[in-house]
């Protein structure tokens, strides 16, 4: 057997299983999402009928979809901004300030990220419970009854309750990411700045922030994609989209249509719109946050 031949056999044996599994269980289903969105398929009939873009036309006038769209946008914006600010703040503190127990705080802040989203849903059901919940009983102890709420029962605030759980879940993860890029900034920069008389805030805005800007830009894409995904997983486990669809998000509506309602074609059309939307949004955000990269 020639050397070249045995090399080729080796390469084929090594990569074929991975390529086959990846194609079968990820690439084909992804194409199926796009293909099925053009069919009227599902319900009880189980007949497939090609309808072109009809599903998308129905979608355009579907008020439930519009509501899930609004909820998703609100969640993406809220979660991204609040998580970003808090994660950068805590990362800066833990890398720059000399505090006892830095390691302890880092370990604790990361805990929510290792919990199953179902457990997080359970925890927040307990936190938000109107009678015996943590949050309302804290307000009870402090005797400020005005702040007590039906956190998961009130149309107007339930979406903020969901956002709170998502932020709680995300802070630690992003904090660790920012910490690692902050740690690589040379200490001499800060020494020079403080000799020049720059305060902590000035140091933060003119050294830390510009030097981790690229990292922040990358995470903005993460925020968009992961909020769309995690809001679905959390809402499905915690509120089921209710009350009255006030926490319905992109993918929970897709899942309800495709799996719950068995209108596969329509569900997949929602999937296509969400998929496209998330990419376009990520591209726009990445475009408008583009700055000249600072080298150090």
């Amino acid at each position: 057997m020639s050397k070249k031949m045995s090399r080729n056999i080796f390469i084929t044996v090594c990569i074929s299983p991975a390529i086959i599994l990846f194609t079968l269980f990820m690439v084909v289903p992804t194409f199926e999402v796009f293909r099925m969105s053009l069919y009227n398929w599902g319900g009880l009939s189980n007949t497939k009928e090609f309808v072109g873009l009809d599903n998308f036309k129905i979608l355009w006038n579907d008020m439930n979809f519009i509501q899930s769209f609004q909820n998703s946008i609100l969640l993406i914006v809220l979660v991204a901004i609040i998580t970003l600010v808090l994660a950068v703040f805590f990362a800066a503190i833990l890398t720059k300030e000399k505090i006892v127990g830095t390691n302890f705080f880092r370990i604790v802040f990361y805990i929510p990220n290792i919990l199953s989203i179902v457990v997080i849903a359970g925890i927040f059901s307990a936190v938000y419970d109107p009678k015996s919940g943590l949050l309302n009983s804290v307000f009870d102890v402090l005797s400020i009854d005005g702040l007590k709420q039906m956190w998961l029962g009130n149309h107007d605030i339930v979406i903020y309750s969901v956002a709170g759980a998502l932020v709680w879940q995300a802070i630690g993860y992003y904090m660790v990411m920012y910490m690692s890029s902050m740690a690589s900034i040379p200490a001499s920069y800060y020494e020079a700045a403080s000799l020049e008389g720059a305060g902590k805030l000035k140091q933060f805005t003119s050294i830390t922030l510009p030097l981790i800007w690229n990292n922040i830009r990358t995470t903005l894409t993460f925020y968009i994609i992961s909020t769309i995904n995690l809001s679905f997983l959390l809402v499905k486990a915690m509120t089921g989209g209710g009350p009255d669809g006030s926490t319905e998000v992109f993918l929970s509506y897709m899942y309800a249509q495709a799996y719950g309602n068995s209108t596969y074609g329509y569900g997949m059309a929602i999937g296509v719109v969400v998929f496209t939307f998330s990419f376009v949004l990520a591209a726009i955000v990445s475009r408008i946050t583009k700055r000249d990269v600072l080298e150090y």
Partner: peptide
């Protein structure tokens, strides 16, 4: 090509393809 092909998979989210996998 295979490297980029596999890397493109990083953008595919399980939540989108759960139902097509079920149907398959």
């Amino acid at each position: 090509f295979l490297n980029s092909f596999v890397k493109a998979g990083l953008f595919i989210n399980v939540s989108y393809i759960a139902v097509p996998i079920f149907l398959m």
